[in-house]
């Protein structure tokens, strides 16, 4: 599923702010700073996001040719996460706990010991697993200032907005009835009328025109 092939289900955003002079070179530099870097077993983080090539999520060495498609900027937003199945973790933790207690001739772990043991077991299991990878396509029409993002979860949108702003120093405004109306270039009178709108009731006779009523 994505911009290049497959099902077309995206969320649309308007980019707020001006593109800087020479933005293509600047953007490539900034994207490289926030390109995806793989998780390691030793570090504490259990999840990381960053940019990758839209054509190959394993390719995070980004340059102009991988990013710019004429007037579009295309990127993959890659997120890797350690996901250790709970039964697997519980089984290994139980075993480690028993070994630890037997070695010390005790019956129960202290709170701190338990936390430390959890970290040790997690690391041991991470070394035998691969992180779960998720990639979401992003296509930015640079001429129109519109970003299409192939995901519709508000929680994921928050992460996108954060990374996009940090990378490009520009804001994303989500599509909605209000933002679409504003994009249509409302006159002052229309904009004021829009902001004052109240919902219409279609299932009652409220506001019925007397002339209309007489015609029934």
């Amino acid at each position: 599923m994505g911009a290049l092939r497959g099902s077309i289900s995206f969320s649309k955003f308007y980019v707020r702010g001006e593109l800087p002079d020479g933005f293509r070179d600047t953007f490539v530099e900034r994207i490289r700073l926030r390109a995806f870097t793989p998780l390691t077993v030793e570090e504490e983080a259990d999840q990381r996001s960053g940019w990758c090539s839209i054509e190959n999520p394993l390719d995070c060495e980004l340059d102009h040719s991988k990013i710019f498609f004429n007037s579009y900027m295309n990127l993959g937003l890659r997120t890797d996460r350690w996901q250790i199945p709970s039964p697997l973790f519980k089984a290994h933790f139980g075993e480690a706990e028993r070994e630890h207690l037997a070695k010390r001739g005790r019956e129960k772990l202290g709170r701190r010991e338990k936390e430390e043991l959890k970290v040790v077991v997690s690391r041991r299991l991470r070394a035998q697993l691969l992180p779960v990878m998720k990639v979401i396509d992003l296509s930015w029409n640079l001429e129109q200032g519109i970003v299409r993002f192939w995901n519709q979860s508000p929680r994921v949108h928050e992460g996108l907005a954060e990374l996009f702003e940090a990378t490009f120093q520009l804001d994303l405004v989500p599509e909605s009835p209000y933002t679409a109306a504003r994009e249509l270039g409302l006159s002052e009178a229309h904009a004021a009328a829009f902001e004052a709108l109240k919902p219409t009731l279609f299932h009652t006779d409220n506001g019925r025109n007397p002339l209309w009523t007489s015609s029934i």
């Binding site: 099902s7 077309i8 289900s9 995206f10 989500p174 599509e175 909605s176 009835p177």
Partner: peptide
């Protein structure tokens, strides 16, 4: 509500 299109 979102004025969005999916499954296009």
């Amino acid at each position: 509500d979102a004025l969005s299109l999916s499954g296009v």
